[in-house]
Design a binder for these strands. Structure first.
Length: 461
RNA sequence: UCCUCAGUAGCUCAGUUGGUUAGAGCGGGGGACUGUUAAUCCCUAGGUCCGCGGUUCGAGUCCGUGCUGAGGAGCCA
């Protein structure tokens, strides 16, 4: 007999006989004549109710079953006699596969997210985290589907990099040297020539420069993989290891870049609205009351676009007082971004053309000499969701930008090669995957949307 | 990294101006009852009050310090 996943069993027309279900017990209620088991195998939120008649062979073993135990059930799908579910499984055989002892930490009792983080290996068996990780998986699959449909090439950018000049944050060093007793040069400095790669190496903080190289040859590409930041930042929105999506398109300007970003965000949200209904309804009920309304609104609204210059003007004209004043030339604070997208615009907004002084060297310089072709997508309730830009494709301008930062163009030789040999306008953006999962689920802590999160001082599991 | 707050039973929490034997609900064990829905009812076991040091006749409670966690800020994705 072949196993049926519970989500599928629930779609079968009842009555249906001879099903084999396997999963883990969420709750058991034993009566004199009948026992009820809520069985869950991770394929959906609700699980399925298994009804075990009191006269069944082996009923004594069933009565001793505990929350968390793994079992196999053979039975028939029938219309439910009780309230609360339309169908249930009338068991003809129940087999204990793996018993959970009475100290199983996930009892049928509300537990704090903080506690569940301490049992990350078990928390996927809870309602909330089962839903989070189903949605996360669906979003990941949906990302590949979106780009695949548009002819993008999926590029695996390297995890280990030797360039420490990307400037996106503190990097984790990768080394095989004995940290307690490294080889040293005559001057007493650590001799990186002796290290595995013959020079200092790090975990990547971004795949963008690699993606650019592939875009300038394969046209439309994207990366989707893990990224590492050694920042000692302890917030609900930062992790040391997270996933990032970075599309990069040749022969593409800032406006077309925004077009893609808008389609992309809407596609992802529409997918989870369509395919993860039960999970999203749970989030809407238990985690974030406004979730469904907000997501539906975003999917249905055209995104606003305005320049940074205009955004600053509208923020100043709003009369709103901010903890940090708004001025042309300063980065927008979280409070500014939220006010702009939530109050002034009321829907997602692309803010474009930031002062060059607050953006990265590789962003394309505008003709005004003052701004660059950067774009941030701000969304209600979260703030910045996407950051991107048109890339500087002109070799001489790019070299000047590097020198202005007191960096050496020679250190970027392979990157500059792409501008020497058949350069072309191109643009792209980066989206923190976990930010999207948080946005889609209403979860407020990044540690609760990553299966086994890594943050400063936390590398369990 | 900075600021603020917190740490009491397996979990979620209460614990008064410092005062006798630190409590409740859920979960666990035993029983009753029941087509049940986080079932219900009775009985029961279960504690390094985060660690260390101090003040005091007396500390879960006050002070210092360390550890851990959370929220906020900065940085960013």
């Amino acid at each position: 007999m072949k196993r049926t996943r519970i989500a599928h069993a629930l779609t079968l027309p009842a009555p249906a006989s001879g099903l084999l279900l396997k999963g883990w017990i969420r709750t058991v209620r034993n009566g004199k004549n009948v026992s009820f088991i809520n069985l869950n195998d991770g394929s959906n939120m609700s699980g399925i109710q298994v009804v075990v008649p009191g006269e069944l062979d082996g009923i004594e073993a069933v009565r001793k079953l505990t929350t968390g135990s793994a079992i196999e059930v053979v039975g028939d799908l029938v219309e439910s006699q009780g309230k609360g579910q339309s169908v249930e499984v009338q068991a003809t055989k129940v087999t204990t596969v793996g018993r959970a002892n009475e100290d199983y930490p996930l009892q049928k009792k509300g537990a704090s997210f903080e506690f569940l983080r301490s049992i990350a290996h078990l928390r996927n068996r809870s309602n909330t985290f089962g839903a989070v990780f189903r949605v996360r998986s669906k979003l990941a699959q949906s990302i590949h589907a979106f780009f695949s449909d548009r002819g993008f090439v999926y590029v695996h950018s390297p995890i280990i990099t030797a360039s420490d000049t990307e400037g996106a944050g503190e990097m984790f060093r990768v080394t095989t040297l004995d940290v307690g007793n490294p080889p040293r040069t005559d001057k007493g400095e650590v001799d990186w020539n002796e290290d595995f790669f013959g020079k200092p190496a790090y975990l990547t903080v971004s795949g963008q420069l690699n993606a650019e190289a592939f875009a300038l040859g394969m046209s439309d590409v994207y990366t989707f993989g893990p990224t590492f930041r050694a920042e000692n930042s302890n917030t609900t929105r930062h992790a040391s290891e997270f996933w990032m999506i970075e599309p990069e398109m040749a022969f593409c300007d800032l406006s077309e870049n925004c077009d893609l970003a808008e389609d992309f965000v809407k596609h992802l949200l529409r997918t989870v609205l369509d395919d993860c209904q039960e999970d999203l309804e749970f989030f809407n009920l238990r985690i974030d009351k406004g979730l469904l309304e907000r997501l539906t609104h975003v999917v249905d609204s055209p995104f606003e676009r305005m320049s940074y210059r205009e955004a600053v003007k509208r923020l100043k004209d709003s009369g709103q007082s901010f903890e940090y004043p708004v001025e042309f030339g300063v980065n927008l604070q979280a409070e500014h971004e939220r006010f702009l997208t939530e109050k002034l615009v009321g829907r997602p907004v692309f803010v474009t053309d930031y002062p060059k002084s607050i953006k990265a060297f590789y962003m394309r310089r505008n003709d005004d000499g003052e701004t660059v072709g950067a774009v941030d997508l701000l969304v209600p309730a979260v703030g910045e969701l996407i950051g991107g830009s048109a890339r500087e494709e002109r070799l001489d301008v790019l070299e000047d930008a590097i020198r202005e930062l007191n960096l050496e163009p020679e250190d970027y030789s392979w990157y500059l090669d792409t501008r020497r040999f058949g350069t072309a306008p191109h643009a792209g953006f980066g989206l923190g995957f976990e930010r999207m999962v948080m946005y889609a689920t209403g979860m407020q802590n990044i540690r609760d949307v990553i299966p086994f999160p890594r943050t400063p001082r936390n590398c369990e599991f």
